[in-house]
C-alpha cells in the first residue's frame, strides 16, 4: 500500500478527491530530507476530504471531514 521511502501523503488518501482548504507555502521536500539529501522546496496544501469520499458506505457520518497536509507533487487537478 505504501511505496518504499519516506512518504508523507498517507495511503488512505490515495486516489481520493478533496478541496484545497488553504495554501501553506513552500517547505523542504521531506522525501529528500529523510535521507539527508539536498531538499528542494515544494508547495504544501491543506486538503479537505469528506468522510464519505474516504470511507464510502463505511463512513460513520458522511459529512464529517478530514484535513491533511499534502505536497503539490502528490496532487493533480480534477475537472469538475
Amino acid at each position: 500500500m505504501m511505496p518504499p521511502g519516506h512518504i508523507r501523503a498517507p495511503a488512505y488518501l490515495r486516489g481520493k478527491t478533496g478541496v484545497v482548504e488553504r495554501r501553506l507555502g513552500a517547505f523542504a521536500n521531506p522525501e529528500k530530507l529523510a535521507y539527508g539529501l539536498q531538499a528542494e522546496k515544494r508547495d504544501l496544501y491543506r486538503v479537505r476530504f469528506s468522510m464519505a469520499e474516504i470511507w464510502g458506505a463505511e463512513a460513520e457520518a458522511p459529512d464529517d471531514t478530514l484535513d491533511a497536509e499534502i505536497y503539490a507533487h502528490w496532487l493533480e487537478q480534477v475537472q469538475d
Binding site: 508523507r8 501523503a9 498517507p10 501553506l24 517547505f27 521531506p30 504544501l44 491543506r46 457520518a61 459529512d63 464529517d64 471531514t65 478530514l66 484535513d67 491533511a68 497536509e69 499534502i70 505536497y71
Partner: peptide, 12 residues
C-alpha cells in the same frame, strides 16, 4: 455537529 479531523501529515 460536524466533526473535522486534522491529520498532521507534514510541517504543521
Amino acid at each position: 455537529v460536524t466533526v473535522r479531523v486534522h491529520d498532521s501529515t507534514a510541517d504543521m
